[in-house]
């Protein structure tokens, strides 16, 4: 019964999408309430999207080139942040001395929002790749440290006791009990920091850049091209959710027995 029901549920979502698109079309091309200079119709957005795929005007690069530039920065900063942040959080949670050593610096850094790093980084490294990758990196490290740390700290005492009665060493308690316990929180950190990285890059590009999706939006705003702005927004949304896919797949694979 339940399987039959869920098979047709997607129609509900499809109806909503069609309805929204229809209303959008109605208030633009349909009834002409909004002109193309304020809110372009869905059809014009699709046209602008197709044109922008090959046309470097008016901002000097095609959509693909902008996207590639943003992705390169996001992924380098993010992956580096993950690779350093997760082990750092784990070490801080498991070894008190490491916690005491790292915490003062970490607490200072974590309270500064990612975007507030942009001005100082621009002064240090200019408006290119490096400054923004560092900003993304800082944000990703903070989120991953915090989540890995809390995940390890939330390991149930009784689970550690079980390990102890089995004669597990401290290292085995960490790798075989605390780490799997912390897995859902670590995944949470991966997701949060990826969302954060993607937000930060767009914001950073609005402030200081000569390439990238955020830059494209900013330029289009300057010359009153709302169609390109909206294309940029859609690309941000769609690419952002595509980036989440591998993390969700990993989560499903490891947590096949259900959540804990």
């Amino acid at each position: 019964m339940q399987k039959k029901k869920s098979k047709y549920l997607w129609i509900l979502s499809a109806v909503t999408v069609v309805f929204v698109l229809f209303i959008w079309w109605l208030v633009t091309d349909g009834l002409g309430i909004f002109t193309s200079n304020t809110l372009p119709s869905p059809i014009k957005i699709v046209q602008a999207f197709i044109k922008k795929l090959t046309d470097p005007n008016p901002d000097g690069a095609t959509l693909g080139a902008h996207l590639l530039s943003s992705l390169k920065i996001v992924l380098s900063g993010y992956l580096l942040g993950v690779v350093i942040g997760i082990p750092m959080g784990i070490v801080m949670a498991w070894y008190e001395k490491a916690d005491l050593m790292i915490r003062p610096v970490f607490d200072m850094i974590r309270t500064v929002p990612g975007i507030a790093w942009v001005p100082v980084m621009v002064v240090f490294c200019g408006i290119g790749f490096t400054s923004k990758a560092i900003v993304i990196f800082i944000g990703a490290v903070v989120a991953n440290v915090i989540n890995a740390y809390s995940g390890i700290k939330q390991t149930k005492q009784v689970h550690l006791w079980v390990g102890a009665t089995f004669g597990a060493s401290n290292w085995q308690l960490l790798t075989k009990i605390a780490l799997p316990s912390a897995f859902p929180m670590i995944i949470n950190g991966l997701k949060l920091s990826l969302g954060g990285a993607w937000t930060t890059i767009v914001a950073a590009e609005l402030l200081a850049s000569n390439r990238g999706i955020g830059y494209m939006i900013q330029q289009a705003r300057g010359i009153l091209r709302p169609d390109i702005i909206i294309v940029g927004m859609f690309v941000i949304g769609i690419v952002g959710s595509l980036l989440m896919l591998p993390i969700s797949l990993l989560e499903k694979k490891v947590m096949k027995g259900g959540k804990w």
């Binding site: 689970h159 079980v162 897995f183 947590m255 027995g257 259900g258 804990w260």
Partner: peptide
């Protein structure tokens, strides 16, 4: 010394 606990404390993973 093995222990069976009050609440189940199996490893859910």
């Amino acid at each position: 010394r093995g222990m069976v606990f009050q609440t189940t404390c199996l490893f859910p993973w």
